[in-house]
Nucleic acid binder design. Structure first.
Length: 434
RNA sequence: GGAGAGAUGGCUGAGUGGUCGAAAGCAACGGUUUGCUAAACCGUCGUCGUGGGAUAACUGCGACCGCGGGUUCGAAUCCCGCUCUCUCCGCCA
């Protein structure tokens, strides 16, 4: 959420930076500021009345104390009207505040000044590459072929159980998935200083609003209900990412600066309805309704957000380096960034079977956009309460990592070579050919 | 699911209609002092909103004692609803 006072004093810049996202949100600023003005005018009026009432009430108390009951009764009658007027204005002020808040919640974050202008993903500059595309001395198979031949995933039965877009990992496939999760968590906790947490896989709507999923992306989430009791629908949602619970761990808290920075990492499955998206329904595991992910979250002092973001991208890159996978780092342009983010780096891994790069990580600094929504603050050294920067990054998404891994390290005989750092987790150095 | 108890400032915890934004303690911050990585003493010390002021220091006003309503001239305090926590019982992995 943006700071209404900042918008008030920087109207043109707000509009300009919103416009750079090409979402049309700059059109809402005028109405927002009108509501703000109306709200403040109402407050001025009602607060004056409240002040008056308070003074009179005090006099009444004194009069009763002096047993001057008649005078007290007279004042009571006079004050009654003020009370009615106050109730009326209060109601108007609340409604105006609510309308203003509704608009604020639909405005995305402002892009950081270092974010390149652009409309779509084709405008995203590549920052760097690591490694190079493997050249197999044979035509590389796609992950779908490999999964079926090696019995890693039973696509048909996955769909039978839950529909298209849901995967049934089997045998070595299930084992590889588990090994990867373990490997990632160990890497981030032992090498990168993150504290592991294991959060609920459902959250309440406040958490979804806190990270910016709601109200804009209601239809992307799976809402759950208890049994057939439709009155419970909407109280809990399957998490689209561990960011939803983990970033909210300290919501509505006031932290001390010496508690920062906080680094969390968490494994969770991620559930995405992908309503209206193309791709679900096609075979494979590139775009699915449920996938595993290890997520990194940082809560840091406001002046350290961008240094911490660079470090986080490095943490995600390390995963791919250890797994010997070719990748590139992309900086998202203004038009392609996520709703809550001020600056985002994507990491895309090379998948030879697909002949394309796959996004496996997205690392963002949301600055104070989310902490403001969730009212998470820390007391700085000057004793001021300030909103920390909140960062999130995939470290990394599993399904696509799985794809890149088996497509990259497939051997001519149909087996999969396992990179050394992963071997202890899988308990094998190869997934044998069928 | 049933019965009971509770929710107060960063934390602990008093406070049952006006003098309460709220005692006290802890923590924090500033200072004094003591020869021993500490103690004692003094002082400061909630948040948010809105106005004045230089987008400062400071300051006026309002709101906030889990959340939302109600009663009242006036509510932390009384009434209703909700959420959460704890204890006991039931069910259950």
């Amino acid at each position: 959420m943006l700071d209404i006072r900042w918008i008030r004093e920087n109207k043109e810049e707000t509009e300009k930076r919103l416009a750079s996202r090409h979402g049309g949100d700059e059109a809402k600023v005028d109405q927002l500021l009108q509501l703000d003005q109306k709200r403040r005018a109402l407050l001025t009026e009602v607060e004056q009345l409240k002040s008056d009432r308070k003074a009179v009430s005090k006099e009444i108390g004194a009069l009763i104390g002096q047993k001057k009951l008649e005078e007290a009764e007279a004042k009571k009658a006079a004050t009654k009207e003020i009370g009615d007027r106050i109730a009326e204005l209060d109601q108007q002020a609340n409604q105006t505040t609510e309308e203003q808040q509704d608009i604020l919640l639909t405005l995305p974050n402002l892009p950081h000044e270092t974010v390149p202008a652009g409309v779509s993903e084709t405008d995203n500059p590549e920052i760097r590459q690591w490694g190079e595309k493997v050249s197999h001395p044979f035509p590389p198979k796609t992950h779908v072929e490999l999964c079926e031949q090696l019995g890693l995933i039973d696509f048909a039965r996955g769909a039978k159980l839950a529909g298209s877009g849901f995967l049934l990992y089997t045998g070595w496939g299930a084992r590889l998935e588990r090994a990867l999760i373990q490997f990632l968590l160990d890497l981030h906790t032992k090498e990168h200083g993150y504290t592991e947490v294991s959060p609920p896989f459902v959250v309440n709507p406040d958490c979804m609003t806190g990270v910016g999923q709601f109200p804009k992306f209601y239809d992307q989430a799976y809402a759950v209900q208890e049994g057939q009791d439709s009155s419970t629908l909407g109280k809990l949602y399957l998490i689209p990412t561990a960011e939803a619970p983990v970033a909210n761990i300290h919501r509505e808290e006031l932290l001390r600066e010496d508690q920062l920075p906080i680094y969390y990492c968490a494994y969770s499955p991620c559930f995405r309805a992908e309503a209206g998206a193309a791709g679900v329904g096609t075979r494979g595991m590139i775009r699915v309704h449920q996938f595993d992910k290890v997520e990194m979250i940082k809560i840091v002092p406001a002046d350290q957000g961008y240094a911490e973001l660079d470090a986080m991208v490095g943490n995600a890159e390390k995963v791919l380096q250890l797994l010997d996978l070719h990748y590139r780092v992309i900086l998202l342009c203004t038009g392609d960034m996520g709703f809550a983010s001020a600056k985002t780096f994507d990491i895309e891994v090379w998948a030879p079977g697909q002949g394309s790069f796959l996004e496996v990580s997205s690392c963002s600094n949301c600055e104070d956009y989310q902490s403001r929504r969730m009212n998470l603050r820390y007391k700085n050294k000057d004793g001021k309460n300030v909103f920390p920067h909140l960062l999130n990054g995939s470290g990394t998404a599993l399904a696509r990592l799985f794809v890149a891994l088996i497509e990259t390290h497939q051997q001519e005989d149909g087996s999969i070579r396992i990179p050394k750092p992963l071997q202890p987790y899988l308990g094998a150095d190869i997934i044998p050919a069928p």
